[in-house]
């Protein structure tokens, strides 16, 4: 009775698995292939080291150093702002907050992760950019800093949850023996929990960096999107926002179109490196 059904089910699982893996591999190869066409016209090094981006001119004018720098700059600003706040909150949660309250606070923080990026962009545009323009008197509030602050808020929940999980575990391991010594809780957190969780802090940083670099909508709405060398209070352009803005204009098959794929590939390779680092860090954390 179950024999036939068993075999059908097993085959179905295998076929579906093969389908999904092929799809994923196909997506990755497809992007790769569409980018390689561009690199036949413009050498890779030229593409990533040149500073001008103008799709209306000749192929030589398609290069993305400024945009790569913009992507990195915005993301790094975000990490620098978010890390201390995230680690601090995670420590507080692990050491001082107990039971129901902790569940509630974790839930509240997860709310941050659930807010769609367009909504972040919307608030960023109406609050942050406006604040820069009216209160600080900048001519344009759309800037690297605005993007960085916005991204910092967006990556906070990822940093907190990654750190908190391992900190809580370490705390549970060491709290009894530390309490037995009569040492204060903040001393324990400072001297043992914080240094012991450096790996997961690193993992959280890498995770957040990946999120930040791949973010499109929120960043696009507040950075001004000008492919110029980024400055903290100046406009800039990131790779995702470049793709989102120009894809509609680029004719399928044109050099401009392939250049957008190529920049997508560059972004993916940067993220791939970051994600592989995260994968191995995670493995090591589990092994510990």
């Amino acid at each position: 009775m179950y024999r036939v059904f068993d075999r059908v089910f097993t085959q179905l699982v295998k076929i579906l698995t093969i389908c999904s893996l092929l799809t994923l591999v196909f997506v990755i190869i497809f992007i790769f292939k569409e980018s390689v066409v561009f690199f036949k016209a413009v050498p890779v090094l030229r593409f990533i080291s040149g500073r001008s981006w103008n799709p209306l001119l000749a192929a030589d004018n398609l290069s993305i150093l400024n945009i790569i720098l913009g992507t990195l700059y915005v993301s790094l600003v975000a990490i620098v702002l978010a890390l201390p706040i995230g680690v601090g909150s995670a420590l507080l949660l692990a050491g001082y907050v107990k039971g129901q309250l902790r569940v509630v606070i974790r839930g509240i923080i997860d709310v941050l992760a659930g807010i769609p990026s367009v909504v972040y962009g919307f608030i960023g545009l109406l609050v942050l950019v406006k604040f820069f323009e009216t209160t600080l008197g900048l001519s344009s509030g759309e800037s690297v800093l605005a993007g960085g602050i916005l991204l910092a808020v967006m990556v906070l929940p990822y940093i907190i949850s990654t750190c908190h999980e391992s900190m809580e575990k370490i705390y549970r391991e060491h709290a009894p023996s530390s309490q037995a010594l009569g040492v204060s809780r903040s001393y324990l957190l400072r001297k043992i929990i914080l240094p012991e969780s450096r790996r997961s802090i690193l993992a959280a940083t890498v995770l957040a960096l990946g999120r930040a670099m791949g973010e499109t909508m929120a960043v696009m709405m507040v950075i001004g999107n000008a492919p110029i060398p980024p400055r903290l209070f100046g406009k800039c352009q990131t790779i995702p926002s470049l793709i989102a803005l120009e894809m509609g204009m680029a004719e399928v098959g044109s050099l401009h179109y392939h250049a957008l794929f190529a920049s997508g590939l560059v972004l993916m390779l940067m993220l791939l490196v970051i994600n592989l680092i995260l994968y191995f860090l995670k493995k090591n954390i589990l092994l510990q």
């Binding site: 893996l21 994923l24 591999v25 997506v27 990755i28 497809f30 992007i31 990946g210 670099m213 791949g214 973010e215 499109t216 995702p240 793709i243 989102a244 894809m247 957008l260 794929f261 997508g264 972004l267 993916m268 993220l271 791939l272 970051i274 994600n275 592989l276 994968y279």
Partner: peptide, 16 residues
């Protein structure tokens, strides 16, 4: 493969 795909930014998925 799954991790790689998780690392592909949403806009690149859109491009695909």
């Amino acid at each position: 493969i799954v991790q790689c795909m998780a690392g592909v930014p949403s806009i690149v998925v859109g491009l695909f």
